[in-house]
Computed example of a mutant assay.
Amino acid sequence: MTVARVALVTGGSRGIGRAVVERLADAGYSVVINYLNSGEAATDLIKYLPANVRALPVQADVSDHGSVVAMREKVAREFGRLDLLVNNAGQTLAGDWCTLEPTAWERVLQVNLTGVFNCIQIFAPLLSDSDQGRIVNISSVYAGIGTGFVAGYAAAKAAVPSLTRVFAKELAPRVLVNAVAPGDIDTEMTMAAGPEFISSTVEKTPIGRLGKPAEIAAVVAFLASRDAAFITGQTIVVDGGRTLGD
């Protein structure tokens, strides 16, 4: 009897995370859908997955170590294994750096950076027991685009590729660790920036449009596959050419 591989997607109820869950479920994975506040969206998502796929919604704040430990216990109890961790949970914070509140700055770093570390540290033993352990961290092209309007988000996402390289060495050869850096993707989070921002970023993107969540999910699925068995410590940019410059 073939046992389905198990994937945990943090921030899996919306946007890129939702697309990743759908792609992995279509590939036959059992999926753990982590969420913070979007429990209804996580439950609703399950209705759109293949009927034979096991799906478990789990509420946890990835920035809180104890909350992630509790999530690991639920995953271990329900599935007894983990083969793929997708660190997708994130929080943006747009605003003038001059007036950025210290608590807001700290929260963005905690979710986008500490959350990645917490999940890797706590789930690494389960992943190491897999014969195809994978971690895919979601960074952002804003890690390399200088803009003070998203200073905290950009700083945290810039650290993700560094953590990716660290853990690629620490967890080799049992677990492969890579990252994906999306450009501006057609999600609620991006749309919240408003039409002026959307128009400006599309103009700066050679392909001439926003990316689709499914296009990021496809790269995540590739990195999780046996076809990517000799790739680790890398960050793949998926941005329609946004960062090519003039």
Rank of each mutant, 00 (worst) to 15 (best):
W105C: 09
G66L: 04
A104D: 15
D96W: 04
V68L: 12
Q110S: 15
V31L: 00
G90Q: 01
I33W: 00
A70K: 14
G115D: 10
C98M: 15
I33H: 02
V111N: 00
V32F: 00
A51M: 13
S13E: 03
C98G: 14
I16H: 12
V116I: 09
D83T: 01
A25K: 03
R23L: 06
A19W: 00
W97C: 09
A25T: 02
I33S: 04
N52I: 00
H65Y: 15
A70Q: 11
L85Y: 02
T99P: 10
L85S: 01
V31Y: 01
G80S: 14
P50E: 10
A60R: 08
E22W: 04
T10R: 01
A60D: 03
V32M: 02
P57E: 04
R77Y: 13
T99K: 12
G95Y: 10
I33Y: 01
A104H: 12
G28K: 08
R18D: 00
V68K: 05
D64C: 14
T43P: 02
E106T: 13
T99N: 13
P50H: 14
L100G: 08
L49M: 13
G90N: 01
E106G: 10
A94M: 12
N87S: 11
R107M: 06
L85V: 03
G39Y: 04
T103C: 11
V21H: 01
T92Q: 08
R81Y: 11
G15H: 07
D26V: 05
N37C: 08
V53L: 10
G66W: 03
E78F: 08
V116T: 11
A70N: 13
T92P: 01
L109I: 15
T103F: 11
R72S: 12
L113M: 05
Y29M: 09
K74A: 13
T92M: 08
V116M: 04
W105F: 14
R77K: 15
A89N: 02
I16G: 10
R81F: 07
I46C: 08
G28A: 05
G28W: 10
V31F: 01
L113C: 05
R77A: 15
V9G: 02
N37Q: 14
I33K: 02
N88G: 04
L85P: 03
G39M: 10
P102G: 11
V21K: 01
G66Q: 06
T43W: 07
G66R: 07
V69Q: 10
I46H: 06
T43I: 09
L82Q: 01
L113R: 02
V53A: 06
R81S: 09
V32P: 00
L100V: 15
V9M: 01
E73Q: 15
R107G: 06
V9N: 01
R81C: 07
A42S: 04
V75K: 02
W105M: 08
G28S: 04
T103D: 15
L24N: 00
G28T: 08
V75M: 07
R23F: 05
E78C: 09
N87Q: 07
H65M: 11
H65F: 12
Y29C: 06
W105E: 07
Y29P: 02
E40K: 11
T10N: 08
L100C: 14
G80W: 03
T99C: 13
C98V: 15
G39N: 12
W105V: 05
S63P: 11
R72F: 12
D83N: 06
T10G: 08
N88M: 07
T99I: 15
W105R: 04
G17D: 03
W105K: 06
K47T: 15
